[in-house]
Nucleic acid binder design. Structure first.
Lengths: 196, 196
DNA sequence: CACATTTTAATACCAAGTACTAATTCAGTA
DNA sequence: TACTGAATTAGTACTTGGTATTAAAATGTG
């Protein structure tokens, strides 16, 4: 009989440790087959499968499918996302409200603070949405980030049309988190061919 | 012998037509198996496989793997994408240049014009990037969209630091497409703990 | 030592294919 | 009408990356 310890890199890890590693591995490289994992840990394929069972990790194909599904959902929601954030009220040519929850993808990894352009995007797309015309484009904007917004906070943007001229509409937008103003902006929006 | 036409919905389509449909189907629902497709077209599974061969469409597993991969790439590039657009030049606390090509996801589906907030995002993230400090946040900005930008155009944003005070930096950004200005903005950026 | 835990092994089976060969059906035409 | 070529269907062997189950071996521990 041969000693098992030396065949790969190191002494075989205890079960717990191996399972912890396994999860990390799969997080980094979700496309690993059981076979490959077994090779890396210097352990039999059945052991890996037992581990997966215990940890509730689905098989390769299941994992891939989940990721693909996520991708699909994203693409679909993106094309639907004509307005950044969710519109909860809209009175054309008058006012509108949208809500945006700050998620991982909106913040700086370093400090969990929302990047300014997401707040801007929410406000800008709402400003454009309230204007009732075929072609609507932002011309100028003057904005102010009043205080930083953090991961998890819900931003409520309120837009109000404040002036109308033949080809321009002025929209004021104020964004609040729990009644505290975090952003405000004045958008001067160009429009043409009334009535979309 | 039985007539083949009536078994499903309609008379069997000619090859060309079926293949066209097949592509559309898979675009909408990429998770269909050959078996399911065969059922829908009222045709044998082999026929579907021949079609896939001719059209160069990979098998189900290949398709979902591709999508999953795309998802992975996106997530990874997103975290790398600290700056929107590609930075081609950067002199800390002085100036910087970034390039952004307007793609499908940046434009209004209706008229192929870039949504303002993408131009803003490019400019804003560049303005933040040129400032050399641990914490950098946009405080206020005054911006102007000079002319609409269309699908496929390459936006070159140039940032220039124009003023420095103990906690504020003013950055002017001008974005051009083929020497024509399309966007300009003045960003007032807050910073703290010099030297990141 | 005896017993439990952990690890391997072995076998049957599955989904969704590929690869290949061969038979059948159909459509148009010489 | 018989023949030909394209299109379709059938059938078999083999592949990947598994599940499910049963059982044997190795290892650890009181």
């Amino acid at each position: 009989m041969v000693l098992k310890g030396g065949d790969d890199t190191a002494v075989r890890l205890p079960k717990k440790e191996r399972q912890k590693q396994l999860q990390l591995f799969l997080e980094a490289e979700p496309f690993l087959t059981d076979e490959e994992m077994a090779r890396r840990f210097g352990v039999s394929i059945q052991t890996i499968r037992l581990d997966r069972m215990e940890l509730g990790i689905p098989e390769l194909r299941g994992r891939i499918k989940q990721m693909a599904q996520k991708n699909l959902d994203r693409v679909r929601s993106l094309s639907l996302e004509e307005v950044i954030g969710q519109v909860v009220e809209l009175n054309l040519d008058h006012s509108g409200i949208s809500v945006l929850e700050i998620r991982e993808e909106h913040v700086f990894a370093r400090n969990q603070i929302a990047r300014g352009h997401h707040l801007f995007a929410q406000a800008n797309s709402l400003a454009v949405a309230v204007v009732d015309a075929e072609l609507v484009l932002t011309a100028t904007a003057s904005i102010r980030f009043v205080r930083p917004v953090r991961l998890g906070e819900k931003c409520v943007a309120k837009a109000l049309v404040t002036r109308q001229t033949p080809h321009r509409t002025q929209v004021d937008v104020q964004t609040v988190v729990e009644n505290e103003t975090v952003f405000q902006g004045v958008f001067d929006v160009y429009r043409s061919k009334e009535d979309k």
